[in-house]
Each structure stands twice: as C-alpha cells, then as structure tokens.
Design a protein around this nucleic acid. Structure first.
Lengths: 135, 135
DNA sequence: CAGCATCCAGGGCGATACTG
DNA sequence: CAGTATCGCCCTGGATGCTG
C-alpha cells in the first residue's frame, strides 16, 4: 500500500459517501484536497460564491474577518485550482466579479452538505463544548 | 448584522445538499463550523478516525506531516467539540485510543462526501492548476 | 507509549498605507 | 473599486528533553 496511490481506499473508487478507510492521506488526493481547503478561508469563500457571484468588496464585507491580503491570496489560489473564476470588467470604476467554475460548482455540493450539518448539529457541538468535562 | 441569525439560509433548514445562499457567515453556525474545521489538520484527523479508532502514534505516523504538538492540540480541540473521544487504557505501557463520538460519526458523512469529491476530481484540479494561464 | 514543556524559526495573517 | 506593498505579531510547527 505504499506504492503509488494504488492503495487508495477502494471505497472511494466506488460511489458511496460512507466511512473512508484511509491510511495514507499524503499519498492520496484526499489529503491533497484537504490541504488546500484546510485553511481559514477557502471553504467559507466557496460557500459564499456558491450562493451567487460576488465582487471583491462584497466578499470582503461578507466574510468580514478576512483581510484584503488573505482575500486576494485565497481567491487567487482557488482560481489557480480551477474552482473560482475571476472576471474583470474594464469599467471606469473597475469591477471584478468572482464566481464558481463548473468544477467549483461540483465541489459546492459536498461543501453544502457540510454547511447543512453545521446547522443541524450546532446545538450539540455547543453543548459538548460546555461539558468539556475535565481538561 | 441583520438581527440574530434569523437570516440563516432557509435552505439549510430544509434537508437538501444544494447551493447555500449565505450572506452573513459570521452570524450563522456555518461560519462557526468552518472556523473550527478550517485548519490544517482537523478534517484529516476526522477522516482518519472515521475509518477506525487510532492510537496516538498511529495518528502521528498516518498523518506524518503533523508535529506532536499540533496532533495533541488538534485532537484535544476536536474532543472539546464533542467530535472525538479520547479513551485512556491504564495498561502498563499506556495506550490511548482516539475514536469518533456519535456526533463525530454524523460529521463523517459530509466529510466523506468531500473526500469522495477529491478522488473524482483529482485530475481536473491538477489540470486546472497546470493551465493556470498567466498569473 | 503518550504527552507536556521549552526554545526557536518561519510564515500565516492582519493592519495600515499607498496605487491604478 | 480593486488591489499591492510593507510591517510586525503571533501562531504553526520542528527539535529536544522530561514525566508517568
């Protein structure tokens, strides 16, 4: 299983959204994806763009905790990954519109499932955190 | 902000995994969840624990890019969030087993969907990245 | 084996200021 | 409006050593 990613969980090769028996995350695309989405802003941005295209400052205001630097940086990274499209309108007051590419749209689905989970289990997480027994 | 999270996407209140019309992420649990999972290791750890319980050093080896510090730190955070269970076996060579809580199990589903997406679209992302035209 | 403590380096990241 | 440039903090994360 240390060869190429031949050892990639066969489950994933199927089409089920069930428990993933992964053991070597670095060797498989799963680790790769999570490395890219595993930052403070990427998933947030994707979800936001999933609702509708946004302009730079719209994103900036919507996220609100993000700095211009990280907004630009993150959105550019997503663009490089083919998930986000950056469209520049050469108007007088320049406007740039960000939207999901078709590929990004497909990613939106599992991402929305995650967002959905968040809403459903918000209470449980908060409660668990308050228990936080001992340490 | 528009009141409490009354503005929380009604879509999420339903039961569909489709585009999420979010506009104020900080005011809703979605932003909260993504803030917690939006780090370098949390999702990786959850996926890994989703396949089966792991012991400390098993996790350390499986992730391999993680330091002891961050492993302990991340796993503890997930424990505090009620997603991971930490079980100490008072054997002579002490062994600690980490596993998903029932809540964590439910989170595993959307997470697996994400992992599944990674496998399916690996090629597309890599290609997009190679194009990466201009900038 | 599991894990904490400390030191230390690098870079992630934000704040501010400036430009086209 | 949509960025870029610069600065600096602090978190991430590695190495090492110690404890139970």
């Amino acid at each position: 299983m240390s060869g190429t990613h031949t050892g990639v969980p066969s489950v994933l090769a199927n089409e089920l959204p069930r428990p993933v028996p992964i053991d070597d995350l670095e060797a498989c695309p799963v680790g790769d994806l999570f490395r890219r989405l595993g930052d403070k802003w990427s998933m947030l941005l994707l979800i936001l763009l999933g609702s509708r295209p946004h302009r730079y400052n719209e994103l900036h205001r919507a996220i609100e905790g993000i700095s211009q630097r990280m907004l630009t940086r993150t959105v550019r990274a997503l663009e490089a990954d083919g998930l986000v499209r950056r469209e520049v309108h050469p108007t007088v007051p320049p406007s740039v519109e960000y939207s999901l590419t078709p590929l990004g749209q497909t990613l939106l689905e599992p991402l929305s499932a995650l967002a959905d989970w968040a809403v459903r289990h918000e209470a449980e997480m908060n409660e668990a955190r308050s228990h936080h027994t001992s340490a």
